[in-house]
Computed example of a mutant assay.
Amino acid sequence: MADEAYHEFVPEGAAFVSVLAHDPDKQHTILCNSMSKNYGISGWRVGYLITNRQLISQIVKLQQHLVTCAPTLLCYYLAKHFDYILEYTRPQIQRVVALRNRMALLLADRNVECLPGDSTFYLFASLGASRMQSKDFADTLLAEHGVGVVPGIGYGASCDRFVRLSVGTESEERLIHGITTVASLIEKTQ
């Protein structure tokens, strides 16, 4: 099973290769994807799954009883305006990817390491030598500095020394402020 929800968020000059390139008959692969995340309509919750016909028919049985479907009106809108949506959102995605790369460099300049990854609008920053765990760090950052991050512990115990930073919706100026504040708090709490 592959989650390719951020397949549009690849670095400039890089080519995205879908998992289906390795299983064109879809006999051993389930591909999950999101139109919502890729095309800037995340509140709409529109996604899709690609796999073999037999498995699709079984998944549809589950889906019908577990998940409410996207409103029909929104599906019609996507179908009618899909090319326009791509034309409009792909430049936005490219700007976000470039911004994410600049913010990763800014963190590195401030001696904050991030886990590798370049196909999303998030950065997973290490707390390094800070003596705080991720929840306490995030709480302090928000309460004392007005900067919000997601504590890594929400992704499991192995991530408790990290925080997730989003670069998808804020201005570059606010992101620089946030990253500077994160780096300063890490340094202060060593």
Rank of each mutant, 00 (worst) to 15 (best):
G47R: 04
Y76C: 13
K37M: 12
E87Y: 13
I85C: 02
Q54V: 15
G40D: 12
G40C: 13
K80A: 05
T51C: 14
C69D: 09
F82I: 15
L49C: 11
A70V: 06
Q94V: 10
L49D: 02
Y84S: 05
I41F: 08
L74A: 09
E87Q: 14
G43R: 04
L86D: 04
Y39I: 02
R45L: 15
L55D: 06
V60M: 02
V60T: 05
Q54G: 15
Y84H: 05
G47A: 07
C69E: 09
R53A: 15
D83W: 11
K80T: 03
Y77F: 12
G40H: 11
V46F: 15
K61T: 08
Y88E: 01
P91I: 06
L74M: 14
Q92G: 10
Q94C: 11
Q58R: 13
R45P: 14
T68K: 10
S42F: 14
L73Y: 00
R95K: 14
G43I: 00
V96I: 13
R45K: 15
I56V: 07
S36L: 07
Y88V: 00
L49Y: 03
L55M: 09
T51Q: 12
S36A: 12
K61I: 07
C69V: 08
D83L: 11
H65E: 09
S42K: 15
G43D: 08
Q94S: 14
Y84F: 01
R95C: 11
A79S: 15
Y48W: 14
Q58Y: 11
L73I: 00
Q64M: 02
I41E: 07
L86E: 01
Q94N: 13
Q92S: 10
C69Y: 11
Q64Y: 04
I56M: 04
P91M: 03
C75R: 08
G47W: 03
T51Y: 11
V60D: 06
V96K: 07
V96Q: 08
Q58D: 14
Y76E: 12
A70T: 09
L66H: 08
P71M: 07
W44E: 02
R95D: 14
H81K: 04
I56G: 00
I59N: 00
L73A: 05
V67K: 01
P71F: 07
F82P: 07
V97T: 06
C69K: 11
F82D: 15
T72K: 13
G40Q: 12
V97L: 02
I93A: 04
